[in-house]
């Protein structure tokens, strides 16, 4: 089989074209967002929110509401609960995050098992981009569009918020608003990501592209482009691999993402492992140079 067949044959199926387009769109949104999350140190928060949206999605499905709405309420709600418990007790934040999101997640799983409508647990957990319905495509389009617009409008403010919130406040920028904006966008992106890779792996979409790009550049603008590029490539390649290997789409997408990270980790020109060990080698070389 040639590379041409490998690329073209899957495109004869409408479901494959849809899957490729939807996952590329979701990758763009999550890739951009991942830059903010990795620099803000919110990876764990991303994990928490993406799991905590589950009961919201189930309830919304059961009530025939847009699932983005349910996800949004529970995503932001979980963060409020995390903040409240942290403030009122002496438990450390990572513990609070762990216990809150698993609680929400467990509620979601229990609800799914009781509300036996058209909801398929495995689709929520592992995504179902190959069988995505027209209404889900529409929702994903709307969510992605909204998230992209918000991130682009508040792009500079969010960079400042990640880098130096104190300065932002001192010049009158409302950091509380930016905090909740980023959380809301995170909840929405989690629902979008849920379509392609499912709740379990959506955190990879929200973290890995940013981490990969962070090792490759020292400029935020470049970082966003690299992150988006790596996320989109991973999604497209992942969908193809999943088709040809008849393997889990979510698994394939995230594996490609992880693979790109490993490449970046090893070979990044300045911050990669090889570059670092080469620099250390040069450093060690200095004393002997002086002796010579």
């Amino acid at each position: 089989m040639g590379a041409w067949t490998w690329l073209i044959e899957p495109l004869q199926h409408t479901f494959m074209v849809k899957a490729l387009l939807v996952s590329a769109l979701v990758a763009t949104v999550c890739g951009l967002l991942s830059c903010f999350l990795t620099l803000k140190g919110w990876a764990l928060m991303g994990d928490a929110v993406s799991h905590a949206v589950m009961p919201g999605v189930v309830i919304a499905y059961a009530l025939n509401l847009p699932f983005a709405l349910g996800a949004f309420v529970f995503g932001v709600g979980s963060v409020a609960v995390i903040g409240y418990i942290k403030q009122m007790t002496r438990i450390k934040e990572d513990t609070v995050i762990g216990l809150v999101f698993t609680g929400f997640f467990a509620l979601g799983i229990t609800l799914v098992s009781k509300v036996r409508s058209s909801i398929d647990l495995t689709h929520i957990l592992f995504g179902n981009v190959l069988g995505i319905s027209p209404s889900d495509i529409l929702q994903t389009l709307l969510i992605s569009g909204l998230v992209l617009i918000l991130l682009l409008v508040f792009y500079r403010d969010l960079v400042l918020f990640c880098f130096d919130p104190t300065h932002a406040r001192s010049i009158g920028i409302h950091t509380g608003f930016l905090h909740y904006l980023l959380l809301s966008v995170l909840s929405l992106a989690a629902v979008a990501g849920l379509q392609t890779v499912g709740i379990i792996l959506v955190v990879a979409m929200l973290v890995t592209p940013g981490a990969t790009a962070y090792l490759l550049t020292d400029r935020f603008d470049q970082m966003t482009w690299i992150a988006i590029l790596s996320a989109v490539c991973s999604s497209l390649l992942g969908v193809y691999f999943s088709y040809w290997l008849d393997a889990s789409t979510a698994g394939c997408i995230v594996l490609v993402q992880t693979g790109l990270f490993v490449l970046s980790f090893l070979f990044a020109p300045r911050h990669g492992l090889l570059a670092q060990s080469r620099r250390r080698g040069i450093d060690r070389g200095f004393p002997s140079d002086r002796q010579a």
């Binding site: 620099l39 400042l160 990640c162 880098f163 130096d164 300065h167 001192s170 009158g172 400029r219 935020f220």
Partner: peptide
């Protein structure tokens, strides 16, 4: 009117941002 100059340990020095961009942040207001 009021600028706060942060302590060195409260700044993320690995942040992917240039010197000029940091100074530009003074203008955001």
């Amino acid at each position: 009117a009021v600028a706060y100059v942060p302590q060195a340990e409260s700044v993320d020095w690995n942040f992917p941002i240039s010197v000029a961009d940091v100074v530009m942040m003074g203008r955001y207001g």
